[in-house]
């Protein structure tokens, strides 16, 4: 028989991974709920998932491809950009949804016990629907320009996982911070806006001046976007700076989970 001990002081900052595993069904139920609800209430349903990235793609290609005319090594700018955009959109959506997820779920948190970490985690799954739709657009564009994926494409899942972990790292941290201090819910839109330009979505990271590169790759998504392009176009191999991106992501993830664990016990009282 299961024995639970409830004490005033928490013994561990780490989440209870065994419990998290037992609640795995909740992860999928919450994700399914989000997917259903997102598209059930709109008339043209899933079409929205296409419209959003296509409009972003058009404006970015116009500004960076036609007006600024950035260097893409001969790759059509639309194709070049949608690769970055697919990774970036998944990340920023996940960051936003996970970051606001705890405040959004306060009614549940106050009435039922379940591992709270499931809430932001489930957003990583529901966000995948939009990601795969963007990926579909990407493959259409790829076929249109008669490109074949390079053999590096087998690494794409790895970079997707890094994007997922980056989004979760930020999202988990912000969700716990904003449960405590509401101010932090304003941070996410800011990150999304600045990040789109601080990430090599519509231009190449190789055009970033060498002296800024160290700073530039502190952005975890800089490495991911370059990685995506390496997988699909097979251009130049990713710069070693990418490991800085991954390192930052891991640090953020650990800090996020630890801080979340600390706020976890207070959530029902402070929300």
């Amino acid at each position: 028989m299961e024995k639970t001990i409830i004490k005033a002081e928490s013994s561990s900052w780490l989440p209870d991974f065994g419990e998290l595993y037992r609640f795995r069904q909740l992860l999928f139920s919450l994700a399914w709920r989000d997917i259903r609800v997102k598209y059930a209430q709109t008339y043209i349903g899933l079409t929205w998932a296409f419209i959003n990235p296509i409009f972003n793609l058009l404006i970015l290609s116009f500004v960076f491809g036609k007006v600024v005319q950035v260097e893409t090594n001969g790759v059509p700018h639309v194709f070049f950009t949608i690769i970055g955009l697919s990774a970036w959109t998944y990340f920023s959506t996940l960051l936003n949804e996970a970051g606001t997820s705890i405040i959004g779920a306060q009614n549940m948190i106050k009435k039922i016990y379940f591992p709270r970490l499931v809430i932001p985690l489930s957003k990583a799954i529901s966000g995948l629907v939009d990601f795969f739709i963007t990926l579909l657009c990407l493959f259409f564009i790829m076929a249109y320009y008669q490109y074949y994926p390079s053999k590096n494409v087998i690494w794409l899942p790895l970079f997707l996982i890094i994007a997922l972990l980056s989004g979760l790292a930020g999202g988990i941290l912000i969700s716990a911070l904003s449960a405590r201090y509401r101010d932090f819910s304003f941070v996410v839109p800011m990150i999304s806006r600045i990040g789109l330009f601080a990430t090599p979505v519509a231009y190449s990271a190789s055009s970033v001046p060498e002296q800024y590169k160290l700073l530039y790759f502190l952005n975890p998504m800089a490495g991911v976007v370059e990685g995506f392009r390496w997988c699909l176009i097979g251009s130049s191999s990713p710069e070693p700076y990418m490991f800085i991106s991954i390192g930052i992501m891991l640090i953020l993830l650990i800090v996020g989970i630890l801080y979340f664990g600390r706020v976890d016990r207070l959530m029902a009282d402070i929300l």
Partner: peptide, 13 residues
């Protein structure tokens, strides 16, 4: 386990 006690201890079987 929705909220935690300020003092004391609970064992649940």
């Amino acid at each position: 386990k929705i909220t935690f006690p300020t003092k004391g201890r609970i064992e649940i079987y």
